[in-house]
Nucleic acid binder design. Structure first.
Lengths: 236, 236
DNA sequence: GCAAAAGTGTTTATGTTACACCCATGT
DNA sequence: ACATGGGTGTAACATAAACACTTTTGC
């Protein structure tokens, strides 16, 4: 069937799920909406795809507009098109995600937002944690169906970390890092403690990291710094 | 930003990648297009999403309209939105895929097609096989960017078969099946031979199949029939 | 009896998990 | 000196891979 004006055209939007570490917690970057719907609510950075604009391009553009974060690689998560998911009308959103080192990507309040902030996942009202411990603050509710998108993104992120045969390397640590720093990230993403010796042994056995001749000096014993090994091709 | 008529609205389409076995080969269901663009070319079944229609719903509807296949579950593959991927204009397509037993889903030439057929993957001009063996027929070129979509779908299908912790069980064999039949499917999807003893041992060890009190009788020694075990919940 | 597919165990290598103590530094 | 995080090896176990011959049927 050739397209014509009889064909409904849903709005097409993009959303970006940016993960990062905040104080040993896995956090996601949200913007506080300036306009209805969900005015004043926290939502994923995102917006409308322009004419003849690629999806990832649109996601990167909206991300920079709304948060100032740029020069990163996104991975596609999927499309969300349930009727009713956006009160403005039939809207299909394509979600992207990645992981960044927050310190290297300062955020700034952009166009359509009144605030931008990293939110630890455990402070958000995702559908999993239906109960809430007293003594904690009220969970933050996110706009639209973004809770669902964030959960899916977390699951995909976990899968990518666990899978050894992944080409996409997220920016999960700065160029030089200690193995403990790297382990903290893994633990936050996977939501469980890892054994220090096994973690280090596996990384070195896989040959994905190598020590550099520098130490991280801090308040205690200095730690060996590592970098990602320039990875040779997989199976030629 | 609130939506208005300034917002471009790309067309939104859906495509379905249906895999099945044909003569020990992995095949995909394609329709021969009746209209331009790509008139006369083979393409994935799919079409325009309707107003306030869910994405999977649209994919199932178009699939049934064009091929007669219905009552199946689809899994989302991803969204394709490169500008220029559709000569009719800016079009975002959301692709779905699954695996079915072809014998249980007879196909029929539907509305916008002049033909429907299962095409073994090795007869298609996918980007991987750039060379073509003499003695074989000319590779079939598929319309739009469907070659890329089919390749992605095959990779995802392989990942799903290999991963033990998969909830979605594709309809890869009839309700009662022999272990050799099941192995043929695995081998076709993965593109390599599997060891018979290891294959059977692993399935039984995982407790995903169980024998039923019936045999498949044929031209040679009868084979034990199995069924999928009614699977108990994973980790309570 | 022979062709064709069904069926069946053991050994080896590899990867995963569990586990406890000493070291180097700043205060 | 002590508190804090950095650093190291081994044994048990589970999983994956390689490998060849006998059995049952139709013809």
């Amino acid at each position: 069937v050739a397209p014509n004006h009889e064909h409904a055209r849903p709005f097409v939007t993009v959303d970006a799920v940016l993960f990062a570490m905040r104080a040993d917690d896995l956090a996601v970057l949200l913007v506080k909406r300036r306009e209805a719907p969900y005015r004043g609510a926290w939502a994923l950075p995102g917006g409308y795809v322009r004419e003849n604009e690629g999806l990832e391009h649109a996601a990167l553009r909206e991300l920079e507009q709304e948060t100032g974060v740029r020069s990163i690689a996104l991975e596609q998560l999927g499309a969300y098109g349930e009727p009713g998911r956006d009160p403005r009308g039939h809207t299909v959103s394509v979600a992207f995600f990645t992981f960044v080192v927050a310190e290297q990507h300062p955020v700034r309040v952009g166009a359509d937002a009144v605030d931008v902030a990293w939110h630890p996942l455990r402070t958000l009202a995702l559908s999993r944690s239906t109960t809430w411990r007293s003594g904690s603050r009220e969970p933050v509710r996110v706009a639209f169906d973004h809770a669902r998108i964030i959960e899916h993104a977390r699951i995909r992120l976990q899968e990518r970390l666990v899978n050894p045969n992944t080409t996409t390397t997220f920016e999960i640590v700065p160029p030089r890092f200690t193995l403990t720093e790297l382990q903290r990230v893994y633990e936050a993403v996977l939501g469980r403690a890892l054994d220090k010796r096994n973690f280090r042994a596996k990384l070195l056995a896989r040959g994905v990291v190598e020590p550099v001749s520098a130490l991280r000096t801090g308040t205690h014993r200095p730690a060996q710094l590592y970098r990602w090994k320039p990875q040779r091709s997989r199976k030629p």
